[in-house]
Structure formats: C-alpha cells, structure tokens
Amino acid sequence: MQDKRFLAAAAVALAICGAAHADEPENNAVRIGYAKVRFNLQSGDLTGPPGTTPPGLKIDAKDLDVFAISYERRLGDNWAAQLQAGIPPTLTAVGAGVAAPVGTVAKARIWFPTAMVRYTIPGFSVVRPYVAGGVTYTFFTEQESSPGYNAAVQGAGSSIDLKSSWGAYGRVGLEYPLDKQWCINVEFSSFHLKTTATVDTQTPGFGTISRHVDLKDAPRIFGATIGYRF
C-alpha cells in the first residue's frame, strides 16, 4: 500500500508540474528509450534456524532490459529537474556459491523510480555533456520463489519478501540535438541497492522455517533515449 501511494503521489506531481508549465515552450522534455541493467550482486549467506540451512548458499541476479521514460523540467540555463520511471522488468534471482546448481530461486518485479537534478556542462557546440545526481526508491512486487528453491530446502512451498530501500543515484551522459525540439541521449548510470530477502518455507514435519539473506549492489545502467522538448 505504501508503494502504491508513493507512485500515485509521483504521478500527480508530474501531471501538475507539466500542466502548470505547458505554456512555456522548451522548458519541459519527455524522454523514452532503452536501458541495460547489469548486476554484480554481493550476497551474504542464506541463514535460518540452527541445523536448517547449509552454509554457503548465496544469490545472484540476471541482467535486465528496461523500457525507460522520464520527464524533465528546466530550472535555468544549465540546470534541470528530472523524474524517471519505466515499465518494471522481472528480476530473476539465481543461486550462487553452493546454491549455483539450483538455478532460478525467485522472481519479482523491480521498481526504481528516481528523482534527480541534472547539470549540462557549458561550452560544447555539437554535443552537450551532462552529469546528474539524485535518489531512487527501490521496491518489489509479484515476488515468488521457484520450485527449484523449494526442492533445495525440502519445502512444500515458500513466500518471499524483499525489503524496499532508498539509495543514491548518479549519471553521466551526452545529449545530441537533432533540431530545436528533438534530441538523442546516451547515458551511463548507477545507483545504490541494498535489501534483505526473507523467505518463509512450509516444511513438512517442521512447520514454517524463516530464512534471510542480505543483498547489496551498485547496478550499472547503459541507456539510450530520444527526447522531445515542449
């Protein structure tokens, strides 16, 4: 419920901001495009009650393809505020360490809406290099464990919960104007991701066994977008 309220508030703020300044040409921009998210997940060991969980069970994540969309509001000659979202991709978690043979252990939709301030470096005639910094809120929906995980821990079924988190977001990029309104952007971004996964497994003869694993990363994001100013 908290995640839905956050998204609703962001959408309302975006609509109000766009409507209030629609009469000011070229102060607004919308960008859409593609991004590749590469993970290098740092995983702790999956832990549970004594005697229930072998040591060395870790988690990794597969890379993602993301459709991105953002709204930008110019604040001055070189400054702009930006809200970024996109269609949430499905994150696939796989076993690592001792758990590598298990394969897929869980799936979830990952959301990371971001607010940032962008600074365009002046003095360039053909392209416009820029840097940006801000904050992202990462949360997960449609979380489910895999049959492979349940079999590995001898469970009849499991529920999984990934903790939401705030993190710093940074970006560098280049903008190439096609004309007064249209432009192309190429970007490299990264953000801080930290979460804890809690998995409750229904285990025959033992009842519910709860296990936890701490995860952190600084995913690398390579993106290309097309923008329209209005």
Rank of each mutant, 00 (worst) to 15 (best):
M1T: 11
D3H: 06
K4V: 02
K4T: 03
A9K: 06
A10E: 02
V12G: 01
A13V: 11
A13P: 07
A13W: 08
A13E: 13
L14V: 05
I16K: 14
I16N: 00
C17D: 07
A19N: 07
A20T: 12
P25E: 04
P25T: 08
E26Y: 13
E26P: 11
E26M: 12
N27Y: 15
A29S: 04
R31W: 01
G33T: 10
Y34T: 11
A35F: 14
K36V: 11
R38D: 05
F39D: 03
F39A: 00
N40R: 10
Q42L: 13
S43N: 02
P49Y: 10
P50M: 03
G51C: 02
P54K: 06
G56V: 13
K58Q: 14
I59S: 07
D60T: 11
D60C: 13
D60E: 14
D60W: 08
A61V: 04
D63F: 02
L64W: 09
L64P: 06
L64M: 08
D65W: 08
D65F: 01
V66E: 15
V66G: 13
F67S: 09
I69L: 11
E72I: 06
L75I: 04
G76P: 03
A80Q: 03
A85D: 11
I87K: 07
L91T: 00
T92R: 02
G95A: 09
A100W: 07
G103R: 01
T104C: 10
T104G: 00
A106F: 05
K107L: 14
A108Y: 01
R109F: 14
I110Q: 05
W111M: 11
F112G: 00
T114H: 06
V117I: 15
R118C: 03
I121V: 04
P122E: 05
F124K: 00
S125K: 06
V127W: 13
V127S: 03
P129E: 08
P129K: 01
Y130C: 10
V131K: 08
V131P: 00
G134R: 00
V135F: 00
T136L: 14
F139P: 00
F140W: 08
F140D: 02
T141H: 01
E142T: 05
E142S: 05
S146W: 03
S146F: 10
G148E: 02
A151S: 11
S158K: 08
S159K: 12
I160V: 10
K163W: 06
S165Q: 09
S165H: 06
W166V: 14
G167S: 05
G170N: 03
R171W: 07
G173W: 03
E175Q: 11
E175R: 09
Y176P: 06
P177C: 11
L178Y: 14
D179N: 12
D179S: 12
Q181I: 07
C183G: 09
N185P: 01
N185W: 08
F188K: 14
S190K: 09
S190P: 03
K194N: 01
T195Q: 04
T196M: 10
T196I: 05
V199S: 04
V199T: 09
D200N: 02
D200S: 04
T201F: 04
T201L: 08
Q202K: 12
T203V: 06
G205L: 00
F206D: 09
G207K: 10
I209L: 12
R211I: 05
H212Y: 07
H212L: 11
V213P: 01
D214V: 07
L215K: 00
P219M: 11
P219Q: 09
R220L: 07
A224Q: 09
T225F: 07
G227F: 05
F230E: 03
